[in-house]
Design a protein around this nucleic acid. Structure first.
Lengths: 249, 249
DNA sequence: AAGCGTCCTTGATCTAGGTCAAGAACCACG
DNA sequence: CGTGGTTCTTGACCTAGATCAAGGACGCTT
């Protein structure tokens, strides 16, 4: 009898692990950040019914490749992703980093194929939203349509700010701006705002900001020297946020 | 009597001029490029009823300013526009150029206020689409909802390609890529693909591509020297398009 | 725990493109 | 049809950040 009491919760955990892929939106930790925010309970169930919760991806694995057939948008469930665009001669540009709750693949909607390649930065999982179902559903559920407009618009806005950074800002301004935006995004997700692990390598940061990796390394060193941040490996602590904000305008 | 025959068409023209702001989508030259493409006749009339065709703007005049209250999206009817984002210390980045049929203001949807400033590059006119009406209407008209998703997605895609250019490409690649994309856009609108007037100044091109105006001037000179383009003032002719395409990958 | 590959750091040097300067061409306006 | 302002061109020079180089640290795998 005593044995049972100890074993039952364990069994429950195992069961949860095994059925984790079938969890509902309602029970999801990301609920308040995610697409279904604001939907009524029965609409939520309808949305739930079209979502495919797929297997986890390992570090470096592609969620989809450029020019592959477009069928689904993806919400990041755990881990992180990057999307890259590449030229014919092989140069790549990382056009975005995606954290839990973010929607990936929206730039493919207007064509039949993905416009970029999306890769996991670490072990990650996603919810797949088949686009044709999502479209139909959003026709019936005003709050969902609005959410989709908002998500698209938000990403547009982000990209325009990034354009500004790439076009007008110095290397230091780009880097500090990047760190602050990461910090804000972690905070929105309920993590600490001032101390976090970088989900991506310095190579990726450099590429994303249009800089050389050596420049990132030197600038991080400089920020540490000036006691504005602490940094060991991928772990970052923002020490003097006001000064950092001043540094990137 | 003979006088009448001569006068009638003239009067008609005048009448058309005066009522030009009340023209319908159906009679609009831009119809095939514009948002209502694919809508049924009666849906088109409903859309028409929410559109406000406003007075023309003069060169340099703002359609809206950053942080102004967001209420409408705008379709360019004639002329051209640029949108700019600015930092606190006054630097500006031109995030997009908009030609007839293009939709302006989509990055504002997710907030209550415009995220950029939109200015006319020459005498221009727009159709205003009050967002709340457009949203309701798109809830009722599937083809319209789809069009809006597509437009948002298309702009997202454009911005990502621009990010790639700003992050990875050389000055020459940026400039040639820009000229070719303008050429394509003119062609889509039924104008000549290989000879056109630049709607914007070199200052604006330079800013948009993250370059100095002197660089633009020098590179254009070089392209003319190499007989790849002809160029006098704002008038551009693309002479060797295959070579140009090669130059920008 | 040794070995290998990737990532990161730091220093020395180089260069694409920026900045400065000065004149020319192109307007819009009275 | 000047004339004052903006825009454009061309040349001389400079610099932020790239590239090259070499060594160190940090994972993986077996």
């Amino acid at each position: 009898m005593m044995q049972n009491a100890a074993i039952i919760p364990l069994l429950k955990d195992v069961a949860r692990q095994e059925h984790q892929l079938q969890l509902t939106c309602e029970s999801c930790a990301l609920y308040s950040l995610c697409l279904p925010l604001g939907l009524h309970r029965n609409d939520l169930e309808t949305l739930d019914s079209i979502i495919k919760r797929s297997k986890p991806l390992t570090r470096g694995q592609a969620l989809y490749e450029m020019s592959e057939n477009f069928d689904s948008l993806y919400v990041v469930r755990s881990g992180a992703f990057k999307t890259t665009l590449s030229t014919e001669d092989g140069r790549e540009q990382i056009t975005g980093f995606y954290l839990p709750g973010d929607l990936i693949g929206m730039d493919a909607i207007h064509t039949g194929s993905y416009q970029a390649t999306a890769k996991a930065l670490s072990s990650s999982s996603v919810c797949a939203l088949p686009y044709s179902s999502l479209q139909e559903l959003s026709q019936a559920i005003p709050a969902l349509q609005q959410q989709i407009y908002n998500r698209l618009s938000k990403e547009l806005s982000n990209d325009k700010h990034l354009l500004m950074a790439l076009g007008q800002k110095t290397a230091m301004e780009k880097l500090v701006g990047f760190l602050l935006s990461l910090s804000r995004r972690f905070e929105e997700r309920g993590y600490a705002a001032n101390t976090f692990e970088l989900p991506m390598s310095r190579i990726d940061i450099a590429n994303h900001l249009g800089l050389a990796i050596e420049t990132i390394s030197r600038l991080l060193g400089q920020l540490v020297n000036d006691d504005l941040i602490a940094c060991q490996g991928k772990s970052i602590t923002l020490i003097d946020k006001p000064a950092l904000k001043k540094l990137c305008n």
